[in-house]
């Protein structure tokens, strides 16, 4: 894969919304790439701008006060300036998306199968019965029991897990090169969550799709992703290969997120260490590092916005590595137990 142009190349993406007469920046200079068949995890607390990033890439934000800057290239094609009509051929066919809440993501008045057929037939000239054959096969592939009957059921007749499987089946119906999954397991219970993650992990071999997996749960990333991007308050905090970030996080926020993963083995602690405080509202971001108010290592130099710098295998927006005071490598939970 080395040397290949990335599948998706996002550069300096900025999204702001007009509110109360001024532009409120939600996403600032977010850059990342997704390669073919790669799984990129985008992590951050609620409100850090993960969904807005995904919706901006898909150009699905219909707020009239939105303004988008930067560049999004998909297979070398610039998406930000593509006319909406041309964009429709990309949505669903090249880049598909699934959402957090499978309960509300299907139109309640049509059967699951009808809605997947629709997704196929909008992009490909196939007959109804051909579409249905593919729908049933997809549902079966996604581990839906009795796919033929399930296709004729309405969304409310299925469990959350089945609905999310159907949702993934619908997203894969046109064999997209990239699947954006916005918190696909957050609304599901733990066992179902593991099954769905398994499904996503296998997409690259079974369907050749890359996945952009959005989550607020570092544990999900640990189980699934090749690369990770940590967002904090609309900015990239750290970005790099998952293995590097898990062994030696360079940003104190990443380290704090990693500390909040429940151990896979050994006794579950009564309370997980969590990060005190909340992220700043977009309008109240401090001029320097946005994490400073919650950071144990904050000092004077942090009042200047730290640029993304290279550290080991990752890029990090913190001045500690530059000052030669990088965080120590982590002791993994497994080793403790």
């Amino acid at each position: 894969m080395a040397g290949d142009a990335p599948l998706l190349d996002v550069r300096d993406l900025c999204v702001s919304f007009r509110s109360g007469g001024r532009d409120v920046p939600i996403i600032e200079n977010v850059s990342f790439t997704v390669c073919e068949r790669e799984i990129l995890g985008i992590v951050g607390e609620s409100g850090s701008g993960k969904s807005v990033t995904a919706m901006a890439i898909m150009r699905l934000i219909d707020d009239p006060g939105v303004s988008l800057r930067g560049s999004v290239r998909f297979r070398g094609q610039e998406l930000t300036t593509l006319p909406q009509k041309a964009f429709r051929h990309i949505r669903g066919r090249e880049i598909a998306m699934i959402f957090q809440d499978p309960m509300t993501a299907f139109t309640p008045v049509y059967t699951i199968g009808w809605q997947i057929d629709e997704a196929i037939r909008v992009h490909e000239r196939v007959s109804k019965s051909e579409a249905r054959t593919r729908t049933v096969r997809l549902l079966g592939d996604m581990g839906v029991p009795d796919p033929e009957r399930t296709a004729n059921r309405y969304p409310h007749q299925l469990s959350g897990g089945l609905r999310q499987r159907a949702m993934i089946a619908m997203a894969l119906s046109c064999n997209p090169a990239l699947l954006i999954a916005d918190e696909p397991t957050t609304a599901l219970d733990v066992t179902v969550q593991a099954q769905i993650l398994d499904l996503l992990r296998n997409l690259r071999t079974d369907y050749g799709s890359a996945v952009m997996l959005i989550t607020h749960d570092m544990g999900v990333v640990a189980e699934t992703c090749d690369h990770v991007m940590v967002l904090y308050s609309g900015r990239v905090a750290e970005r790099g290969p998952a293995s590097a970030i898990f062994t030696q996080p360079a940003h104190p926020y990443t380290a704090a997120l990693l500390d909040s993963i429940p151990p896979l083995t050994g006794p579950r602690p009564m309370r997980l260490p969590s990060i005190a405080g909340v992220p700043p509202a977009p309008l109240e971001r401090p001029p320097g590092c946005a994490f400073a108010p919650r950071c144990h290592y904050a000092h004077d130099a942090c009042s200047v916005l730290p640029p993304l710098v290279r550290f080991a295998e990752q890029d990090v927006a913190c001045i500690l590595p530059g000052e030669g005071k990088a965080l120590p490598p982590r002791i993994l939970h497994g080793a403790e137990a």
Binding site: G92, A96, F99, A105, V122, M170
Partner: peptide, 10 residues
């Protein structure tokens, strides 16, 4: 949500 899904389908 389902309207967003419908748009995301293309």
């Amino acid at each position: 949500d389902f309207m967003r899904t419908a748009r995301a389908k293309g």
